[in-house]
């Protein structure tokens, strides 16, 4: 099945750590409780410094971001092991992050939860894209098109079916690794 998303992008720098994605004070919210999951989304990226990010990720009073794609530099998601980080982004409506590299636990949590696709770029896209640019992410060709430029991304490979299934539990059930729910 062809999968393509088109959306304005939100561009962040290098080393965006989990405190910037979801500050620790909001970790009181439990992601498996539906209303608290939604609330986590409303705080996504609120830790980004105001002076560096005058255009805020989440519009005032909104619970869903207009950006389905986040473009990032190196070491995205470093710091804590909080799964609240990919969950907050997913709950805010983000479907994919395209970063130069990831911190290990963030990448893993993104896949385990199925919240978002952690793509790796070959170029330093944060020097090319601007927040608000419209981009198209094509999952079948592993490419990101911004304006008239198309960038080839590192193939997401085995991770795609896990995220498509909705995370490791659904994937493990679909593939018979663990029994179906009673």
């Amino acid at each position: 099945m062809a999968k393509v998303i088109t959306s304005p992008v939100y561009v962040v720098g290098d080393n965006i750590d989990t405190d910037q994605i979801i500050p620790a004070q909001y970790l009181t919210l439990v992601p498996t409780i539906p209303e608290e999951y939604k609330k986590l989304g409303s705080y996504a990226m609120v830790g980004l410094p105001d002076e560096l990010y005058p255009t805020r990720f989440m519009a005032e009073g909104s619970t869903e971001a207009e950006y389905k794609i986040v473009i990032a530099g190196k070491n995205f998601g470093c710091g804590s092991s909080r799964e609240h980080a990919p969950i907050a982004l997913g709950a805010a409506g983000v479907e994919a992050v395209v970063a130069e590299s990831y911190a290990r636990i963030f990448f893993r949590n993104s896949v385990a939860t199925g919240e978002l696709y952690p793509y790796e770029s070959r170029e330093r896209l944060i020097d090319i894209c601007r927040t608000g640019d419209i981009a198209t992410l094509d999952f079948d060709t592993d490419t990101l098109t911004v304006g008239n430029q198309t960038f080839s991304l590192k193939p997401i490979g085995d991770v795609r079916p896990v995220i498509e299934a909705g995370g490791i539990f659904n994937y493990a059930r679909q593939s018979g690794m663990i029994p179906s729910k009673a």
């Binding site: 804590s80 092991s81 909080r82 636990i105 893993r108 385990a112």
Partner: peptide, 26 residues
Amino acid sequence: GTDSHTCMAGAFGEFASGIGNTDAGF
């Protein structure tokens, strides 16, 4: 452990690593 500083127990010659909630639920 569901915390990134779980790696502290590596001081005792064990493999100790931080994980997320979904992996911990598993």
